[in-house]
Amino acid sequence: MRPFEYEEPRSIEEAVSLLGAPGKNRLLAGGTDLLVRLKRREWPVDRVINLKRIETLRGIEERGDWVTVGALTTIEELERSEVVAKRWPLLREAAMEMASPQVRAMATAGGNLCNASPAADLAPPLLCLDAQMIAVGPRGERTIAIRSFFAGPGRTALAPDEILTGIRIPSAPARGCFIKFCTRRAMDLAVVSVACAVVSKETRLALGAVAPTPIRVAASAEEAAMRCAPIDDVRATAEYRRELVRVLAGRALAKAAS
C-alpha cells in the first residue's frame, strides 16, 4: 500500500470532524474491503480514519421496540448473537454464509452495508426487516430507511461527511430464510441471493446481486424475476440469474410459509 496519514479517533464526534477535513479521507472498519482496494490502488487516499477504538460503535443492544446493531459489530458477533438467532434466522444465515471464519472475525456489519455491493449479504435480510440506518454528520444524527440507503454499486445515501454508526431493526421477530447461490461452498460472492421474512403475517422478499443495488420486491417469484435487472458478469449471465431468482424466490417463499 502507499503511505497514508493515520488517525484513531476515540469518539464519533472526533471521527466526524476528521472525516470532514480536507483531503481524501477513508474510514477503516474491519478492513477486509478497504485494504484490498488500497492495495489495488483503486481508491486514492490521504488519510485513513480507523473507527475501531470507538467503543460505542460496537455491540448489539435491545431497547424498547428496536434492536440496534453498532456499525463496527463484526459478522462473527452477528452470527453468534442470541438476540439475532432467536428473532431473525435469515440475518443469522446471511452472516454465517459470508466469506470465511477469519474474515468474519474482522469484517463489520457497517462495512458490508456502506461498501454497497449489489451482492452485500446483509442487505437482503435487512431490507426484509425494514431496518433503519443511523448516520451521524456535522449537522447531527438522522435515520435513513434501508430501502433508500443504497444508491448504486458502491454508492449510498450517506453524505461524504457522514458516518454510519448503527443499524436499527424493529424488534418484532420474523420467520424466514436467506438463500445464497454460489459456485463454491465457502469464500464466494453470491451469484444471486434471496431473503424472505414473514413479519406479523406480512411476507417480504428481497434480492441481492441482480440489480445495481440490493432490492425489495413484491413477495412473488414471478414478479421478482420480472422486477430484477441482472447483468452478465464473470459469475453468471443475466438470463441465468433471472431464472435463479424465479426458482430461489419460490423456494424461499415456500420455506417461509411452511
Binding site: 493515520y6 477486509t32 480507523n50 475501531k52 474474515v103 472475525a105
Partner: peptide, 27 residues
C-alpha cells in the same frame, strides 16, 4: 493472495484466527 482469500497469512490475534494481510499493523 494478499487479499484475504487464501488464508495462508492466518495468525491468531488475541486467540482468534484473522488474515494478517488485511490487518493494519496499528490494529
Amino acid at each position: 493472495c494478499s487479499t484475504g482469500d487464501c488464508g495462508a497469512c492466518t495468525v491468531l490475534l488475541n486467540g482468534k484466527a484473522v488474515v494478517s494481510c488485511l490487518t493494519l499493523a496499528p490494529d
